[in-house]
Design a protein around this nucleic acid. Structure first.
Lengths: 359, 359
DNA sequence: GTTTAGCACTCAGGAAGATAGAGTGCTAAA
DNA sequence: TTTAGCACTCTATCTTCCTGAGTGCTAAAC
């Protein structure tokens, strides 16, 4: 079905006005907003058409019009103006993101914060790693009861653990353990680490104290947790400012859904690198999101790692502005994380991909 | 001022009934609840007294009574029955906490989740570390362009970073760097790491490529971030179920306050190890918490590290149950983290204090 | 002196009705 | 095809009324 230009203009006016005011839009308002030189009566005729073709709807007879999901979709696909960020906005984002560029976890969480801050919607920040294996084992002997395990993974992240044992061992044991683990435990997936493999290693190094078990246990733990990425939600409080969530019941349902991060794990499958994806109302699979919209932007977080930032809000969302902002943040992240740009200059920041943690 | 036993009984009945129903409590209800063998009229006389001495108040003439902060305080200090957790509750907490005992960050965040889950209030989880210094440097040479920095801190946490440089260096350089850093950079605080110290190290090892700067930069970063602990808020959505937050405006104010974790950094100063602390309404310093209550429990997270879990809710909070639950969780954490108990048995879990991170 | 029954009084909250106003759809003329 | 005119619809708001829970006070009973 074809839609006349005038209808599109009208639809656009309805969407933009509704986004701003959250009130059904009447014919007179549209006339002003769209700057059309025809009377409200004419616009009413067009509105009736747009209603019957499903782009708009009326909360009740004799109310103004409200966009449907189909209406928003058309708007997003064809009518939405590409929005430019203001200099202040880009500068704020840049400053906030690059300040902490040394710490990846921090950076990703900051990106979520930032997304929520600039859009005024709850934001999600998700990372998903493709399965990694261990590239290298190092064992650092500290004292007769203590050593540190350092694992270098194929995705260039480093994991460590301090192990303190109630019995003592010799430094030479570390060297032997290193050799065996580097020989037998590198390049394999979690399920390949079997009790058989562990006991054969124990025999190989003469370990009667369970050192191999400790190290292997840590390896299993790392491999199993590394494959599931983390998700983070910030700024839920923003929902409560919106008129569509003045019913606490409704707000509660959505916030509850968002607070269970396992619900969010499907999102990464929906985006393609570099793209901004918009899911409007019923386009969402989850029942809890059927009358909300989600805007997602993915970024490249370096080797084998994909990141996603997104915001959740009512279908009446300022798609244009939100998309622009997320897109910018995602691009900045890709750049900062070396996924396609030059790293930021500065002291101690040269292509560094390590990590920090608290034990 | 002395309060008769009967008045105390009545106050207790009012508090407990109000906690349950969130409705002002009338004299008849109290008669039943407290099982007093006197008439409602008598109780009304007592209520009037309790009102004038400030333990109760009336939303309006001819409504029932509601406890004031002073009333809650008396209740918490003297009248509250020590509540025992059910076996299911303790088991649920134990299971959830020990399952992930290997990862400290995870454990702390789980504890927050758990606190929110069992109490149905938003929970905060805060850790504050007392300043640590670096105990030991290790540098692991990976290839001519790559090495890993491993720092062991005095509080027995381990930090690491993979550094990939655009120029190559020899393995022997690592050994020299290790020696210098272990000699000059251990045991000192962040502000002692001066450009002068760095350049003298560069001269000592013959570093013309800025390797010393990279390592020193990482050390500074670690020392400066390690001293500020992390805070985490979970379960904010729970607020919306409560009748006192049916006004979204009110809920928004509190959630906004909580979402800024820097607001929470004063909390640790309020508790003593092992104690459960209750702050009722206006006893809170922050304006935003003046009509909410906070219950805090601290735990010992091992060397030089103090942890705090707490929940935030309306003054009408089930103090007894919340205090019992938090206390139990805090005790479990202290135990798990080796701050005064035996570590849990099991594969790979022997007094381990390391950490894992994603870079 | 304390307790209690009786009673008039108060006040929040909900139901019912009245009103206003925004916006519509339709018809008939331009 | 557009537009002016007009009757109509429906929500939101305001007012009024009513109900019932709960009080405070008084005077009698214990």
């Amino acid at each position: 079905m074809q839609i006349s230009d005038r209808k599109k203009k009208i639809l656009q006016a309805v969407v933009e006005e509704y986004i701003e005011t959250a009130e059904p839009v009447g014919s007179k308002t549209i006339q002003h907003k769209a700057g059309l030189d025809c009377s409200p009566a004419t616009i009413r005729n067009e509105l009736a058409d747009l209603c019957s073709s499903g782009y708009l709807e009326q909360p009740h007879t004799s109310a103004g019009r409200v966009p449907t999901a189909k209406g928003y979709r058309l708007y997003v696909n064809e009518l939405m103006r590409q929005q430019k960020l203001s200099v202040e906005e880009t500068e704020a984002i840049n400053a906030s993101l690059s300040a902490k560029a040394e710490e990846l976890d921090q950076l990703i969480s900051d990106a979520g914060h930032m997304a929520s801050l600039v859009t005024n919607y709850p934001a999600v920040s998700i990372t998903s790693q493709t399965p990694a294996t261990i590239k290298r084992f190092d064992l650092i002997y500290i004292d007769p009861n203590t050593f540190i395990i350092v694992l270098l993974l194929t995705n260039d992240t480093v994991k460590n653990k301090l192990v303190h044992l109630p019995f003592s061992f010799e430094e030479s044991m570390m060297t032997r353990l290193s050799a065996v683990f580097n020989a037998s435990f590198t390049g394999i997936t979690e399920d390949k680490i079997s009790p058989v493999l562990i006991s054969s290693s124990e025999r190989a190094v003469g370990d009667t104290m369970g050192l191999c078990s400790v190290i292997a246990g840590f390896a299993i733990e790392i491999l199993s947790t590394a494959k599931s990425g983390g998700a983070l939600v910030t700024g839920e409080a923003n929902l409560l400012k919106l008129p569509e969530f003045k019913d606490p019941e409704k707000a509660h349902r959505l916030m509850n859904y968002l607070s269970d991060t396992s619900n969010l794990s499907i999102l990464p499958s929906l985006t393609q690198d570099g793209d901004v994806k918009v899911l409007i109302g019923p386009e969402n699979v989850a029942e809890e999101l059927k009358d909300s919209s989600v805007v997602l932007a993915s970024y490249n977080a370096g080797d084998n790692m994909k990141g996603l930032i997104g915001v959740v809000g009512p279908t009446r969302m300022d798609y244009s502005s939100v998309a622009a902002k997320l897109s910018y943040i995602a691009a900045s992240l890709s750049k900062l994380l070396g996924g396609g740009g030059s790293p930021p200059p500065g002291f101690g920041k040269l292509m560094i991909k390590g990590d920090d943690n608290d034990g």
